[in-house]
């Protein structure tokens, strides 16, 4: 469980798109899954390639993000990272679910329905 988790941000949500994220949350957790360090980074500009560089540079082990292109997904998987993409929801919600081992790629965490 220990390692660094990166969540791409759009306001307080997981960024809908990996390549357009201009803010990220980096959370380092220990073996018990307790949060040791938290850092929010504002990126100079949104770029999927630059974000991949940052992820490798910071030795991130898990990426939680929204929609992501195949190319970047497979690149990060090839670099042996866990990539939970297609996640739609509040960033904190996604993070806590991941720490409980309940988050999967494609999970929609927003309340649904509404045809009321």
């Amino acid at each position: 469980m220990s390692g660094t988790i990166l969540v791409t941000l759009y306001r307080d949500e997981v960024a809908p798109r990996f390549d357009l994220a201009s803010e990220v949350l980096l959370v380092t957790v220990n073996d018990e899954g307790h949060e040791m360090r938290r850092q929010e980074l504002v990126l100079a500009h949104a770029s999927a390639d630059d974000l991949c560089d940052l992820i490798l540079d910071r030795e991130v082990s898990v990426v939680i993000t929204g929609g992501m292109e195949d190319e970047h997904y497979h690149y990060l998987r090839w670099k042996r990272l866990d990539v939970l993409d297609g996640v739609a929801g509040l960033a904190e919600d996604a993070l806590s679910r991941h720490l409980r081992g309940e988050l999967r790629s494609g999970d929609i965490l927003f309340p649904r329905g509404g045809h009321g």
């Binding site: 759009y10 949500e13 798109r17 929609g67 739609a88 927003f110 649904r112």
Partner: peptide, 18 residues
Amino acid sequence: DEAAGVPCRHILRGSFCQ
């Protein structure tokens, strides 16, 4: 059905959404 109620930026994921 699964998109209902979800902010559209998370469904359309458009470059123009943000």
